[in-house]
């Protein structure tokens, strides 16, 4: 019994760590840059397939972190500077901007996904890395999952401290509170927003890479992760970074419990939770 519970909890934490990482990325993109980025999952896919691609050349996945992260960052940064900056300046209101930027990100979803499909095809891809079992209090886990969990938590915390402690992080939080005033205080708002979007994409890239260490991946995996991310972000309160971190772990645990009870219903459980949340408390557990 205890082993079973441990089994569920650790599996939930692993899942939760990945969710938390992805959700922090989207939270930054929505909370600061006001883009509900539906193509978020495509950056996860890019990170995952990037790692798989590099593994084919014998590159250790943990080394690939240093490659996939910056690449997804640059793509995100440039996309914001080209597409979303223009949309932001031409939109009449913040509501109109949120609507049109969401639709534009739908377009990006199709663009990124089809380029990946053209390059890599639609087959399921996987590689073996640190696949030996490790005994945790009687429950057996593959070493790669524990490594992924450790990295997810580590990256999440680094990111959090970056926001709280550094000067740039403070500028970002100021921009989230009040873009106009932050602009007056000498924060280059376009640069900061693009940075946030890029950082969000980078988090997705990291998470995708960690996912590829544990699970098989493919070019169409993105949308499902996007939806899970949105659920986590709503759960934690749209735009709240600590909320996303905690929400990720909560959803991971729920997923793990439902999977244990009835594997076919885990996604359905997520959606039910999501819709109930939107109806009852759309501001999330840590929202205002």
């Amino acid at each position: 019994m205890i082993v079973e519970i441990l089994d569920i909890v650790i599996a939930g934490l692993l899942l939760g760590g990945l969710y938390a990482l992805i959700a922090m990325g989207l939270s930054l993109q929505y909370g600061v840059a006001r883009v509900l980025n539906i193509s978020h999952g495509e950056f996860i896919m890019l990170g995952a397939l990037g790692a798989w691609f590099l593994f084919g050349f014998g590159v250790n996945p943990l080394v690939s972190l240093a490659i996939c992260g910056p690449v997804t960052f640059i793509i995100g940064f440039l996309l914001y500077r080209t597409v979303f900056t223009r949309l932001r300046t031409s939109s009449a209101s913040i509501g109109a901007y949120e609507g049109s930027s969401m639709l534009a990100s739908f377009g990006l979803l199709f663009i990124i996904q089809s380029i990946a499909l053209i390059a890599w095809g639609s087959g399921i891809k996987g590689y073996t890395y640190l696949a030996f079992p490790v005994n945790v209090g009687g429950a057996l886990f593959a070493a790669n999952r524990l490594v992924a969990l450790a990295f997810a938590v580590f990256l999440g915390l680094v990111f959090y401290f970056f926001l709280v402690r550094t000067r740039l992080g403070k500028a970002i939080r100021a921009a989230a509170q009040d873009p106009a005033t932050a602009g007056l205080m000498g924060v280059n708002i376009n640069q900061v927003l693009a940075l946030c979007f890029g950082l969000g994409a980078m988090m997705a890239g990291f998470a995708g890479l960690l996912i590829s260490i544990c699970y098989p991946v493919n070019t169409t995996m993105g949308l499902e992760y996007t939806i899970i991310t949105i659920i986590v972000v709503v759960l934690g309160g749209l735009g709240s970074i600590p909320g996303s971190f905690i929400g990720g772990f909560i959803l991971g645990l729920i997923g793990s419990i439902v999977t244990y009870l009835e594997p076919g219903l885990s996604l359905a459980a997520y959606y039910v939770l999501f819709m109930l949340l939107l109806l009852v408390r759309p501001t999330g557990i840590l929202g205002k």
Binding site: A104, I111, I112, Q113, S114
Partner: peptide, 17 residues
């Protein structure tokens, strides 16, 4: 199919912009 999706996405972004 893949090129169709690509065109679909590009047109969507261009139209919105």
């Amino acid at each position: 199919p893949y090129y169709y999706m690509l065109i679909f996405g590009i047109i969507l972004v261009v139209v919105i912009l």
